[in-house]
Amino acid sequence: MTERVRVAIVLSTSSGGIGRHVRSLVDRLEARGVEPHVVAPAVTGENFGFTAPASGSAPVHTPVRFSAVEILTRPRPRHDMRAVRALRRLLRDADVVHAHGFRAAALAGLALGRRRAGRTPLVATWHNAVLGSPPRRALLVGLERLAARRADVTLGASADLVERAAALGADDARLAPVAAPAMPPPSRSRAEMRAELGAADRPVVLAVGRLAPQKDYETLLAAVARWATRERQPLVVVAGDGPEMDRLRRDADNARIDVRFLGHRDDVPELLNAADVYVITSRWEARALVVQEAMRAGVPVVATAVGGLPELVGEDALLVPAADPGAVAAAVTRLLDDPGLRTELAERARLRSRQWPDEDGTADQLVRIYRELATQPSP
């Protein structure tokens, strides 16, 4: 019988794709001979069901050992050192540590110490690029470098992240695409969902994601203003919440454009079923989970040519430059005016999505790495 491997999985505050990915992974590890121990902020544990369910309620996911450590997404030196001390204690009994995000990887690296013989191996998955102002990027590059050099294996969710980690000193950097969790089938028909949205006979353009600077919804709003004179204007629907919600609503009102901000939604399969086009205007993405979901559902995609999106969609979506409202507007209206192209891209998207690794394939890749490291001494 294969010996079981104890893996401590460390992540910082998450409300989106990273947490969903880790939840999917954890649910598959026990059957593969891995005992997971999730270490994350309490709110992340609650968001993704890592903490115990309420008394009397049935667990939704596989039960998992969980320890709360407040690892924040922004550097706070005193707070971070408390987290490092907590990690040092909690990671002692792990055969392998797997940190998600370079912040979690840097703090786990500090807790474990420099790479040396006998040190617990560290796997680090990089899910995001460092964005923002030059001062912010300069502040965080030190943490990126620390994360790269302390990890035994660095996994990048997209090729540009692998290249970045290698440039910062990662000894073993590999591509590890993150698969979007499988979606349930829609529980309401396309007609029912469109009626709820008030679409009537208007085409529906959908965007899903956190309302934060990286997603660059300003470009989407500017694109919407460019098709305001169309005889049959599309209904633009944005699902998600975040710090820019109020400002974006004000901007849309001031521009007198029809954009519906729905807030957080748990019915993305129904929204995709109602959509004619999916659009993402991000400044950077790795392998955006919702783009994977849209293409699996056969919704034609307009996406910015940034990060890992070109390698994800290939020629089976319309790619546009970042921060270019004119290009976004032209691509969306091209699809709306050409039903044949929409049908073609929908079918090509479904076919392409079948070639992507699924959740089981992602888990299998990681378990192979865990076993590889657990049986080999660190240098």
Rank of each mutant, 00 (worst) to 15 (best):
R85E: 14
A86P: 09
L87C: 04
L87R: 00
R88G: 02
R88S: 11
R88E: 13
R88T: 12
R92Q: 14
R92S: 13
D93S: 15
A94T: 05
A94C: 07
A94M: 07
D95T: 06
D95A: 10
V96Y: 05
V97D: 05
V97I: 06
H98I: 07
A99N: 08
H100R: 08
G101N: 03
F102W: 14
R103A: 00
R103P: 05
R103K: 15
A104S: 15
A104M: 01
A106F: 02
L107W: 06
L107T: 05
L107G: 00
G109F: 03
G109M: 03
L112W: 09
L112F: 12
R114K: 15
R114S: 14
R116M: 10
R116Q: 15
G118L: 12
G118K: 14
T120C: 12
L122F: 09
L122S: 09
T125Q: 13
W126N: 02
H127K: 12
H127C: 10
N128E: 13
N128I: 05
A129H: 13
A129G: 12
G132Q: 12
G132F: 11
G132L: 11
S133D: 13
S133K: 12
S133R: 15
P134V: 04
P134F: 10
P135N: 09
R136V: 15
R137V: 13
R137C: 12
A138F: 14
L139V: 14
L139M: 15
L140G: 02
L143E: 13
E144S: 03
L146P: 00
L146D: 11
A148Q: 04
A148L: 03
R149A: 01
R150I: 04
R150G: 03
D152I: 10
D152F: 01
V153N: 06
T154F: 02
L155W: 11
G156N: 00
A157W: 06
A157V: 14
A159D: 14
